[in-house]
């Protein structure tokens, strides 16, 4: 718990809880490997993009926060790492808009457009916050990416955002903990 609070209060923006979990531990050749990638953005960026800043940003026509990220899957080796998949480039964004929802106290609100272009409109700020800064996504690794055998893999993440009224632009890199996967012999 102390760790989580530390991250939320961090001066800088950080990537937390980055994990990659294969949905199966063994995969047969010719089949795609499906993994679930999860991470959270915490710290300054997350704190800055809040109801308190929406109104001012909206008035300055600073309407969109884009979180562009790239995921690359690498196989660990003794000296060099070998890229097995990626980079997969994805964008998630928040758009500020003037809502006429009579239930909302503030009329400037944020909607989230996810990586698939699906819009999400919420009634509560916490929901916006979670939808924007907590990432959980299934990724398919093509069948030819891994040869038969045991592999220790990890994911590399590069996350970028632009300069806004409420936060400076920035870039973060992170690595997931290693995970094992077995590709069976044909």
């Amino acid at each position: 718990m102390a760790n989580r609070l530390d991250l939320e209060a961090a001066e800088e923006t950080v990537v937390a809880n980055f994990s990659v979990t294969p949905l199966v531990s063994e995969v047969t050749p010719g089949r795609e490997l499906e993994v679930e990638v999860a991470f959270s953005v915490k710290g300054k960026l997350r704190r800055s993009f809040s109801r308190a800043s929406w109104q001012e940003a909206y008035e300055a026509h600073d309407l969109q926060l884009r979180l562009a990220y790239e995921l690359t899957l690498v196989r660990r080796a003794a000296i060099f790492h070998h890229k097995v998949f990626g980079p997969l480039r994805l964008v998630k964004k928040a758009k500020l808009y003037w809502s006429r929802n009579p239930d909302l106290e503030d009329h400037i609100w944020a909607m989230v457009v996810d990586e698939d272009g699906m819009p999400h409109i919420f009634d509560r700020e916490e929901q916006v916050d979670a939808a924007l800064f907590d990432f959980r996504r299934r990724v398919l690794i093509p069948s030819g990416a891994l040869a038969p055998g045991d592999h220790v893999l990890k994911a590399e993440l590069r996350l970028r955002w632009g300069r806004h009224l409420y936060v400076e632009g920035g870039e973060l890199r992170a690595e997931s903990p290693p995970f094992g996967v077995k590709v069976k012999q044909a």
């Binding site: 309407l63 758009k95 500020l96 808009y97 006429r100 909607m111 457009v113 272009g117 699906m118 819009p119």
Partner: peptide, 26 residues
């Protein structure tokens, strides 16, 4: 509707309005 609403983008409005309103009453 879902596809279209993902392109939601508010404009700059008018900075020289003819009617000054405290609260929006469309």
């Amino acid at each position: 509707y879902l596809k279209f609403s993902s392109y939601w983008s508010d404009g700059k409005g008018t900075k020289a309005p003819n009617v000054q309103m405290e609260n929006c009453q469309c």
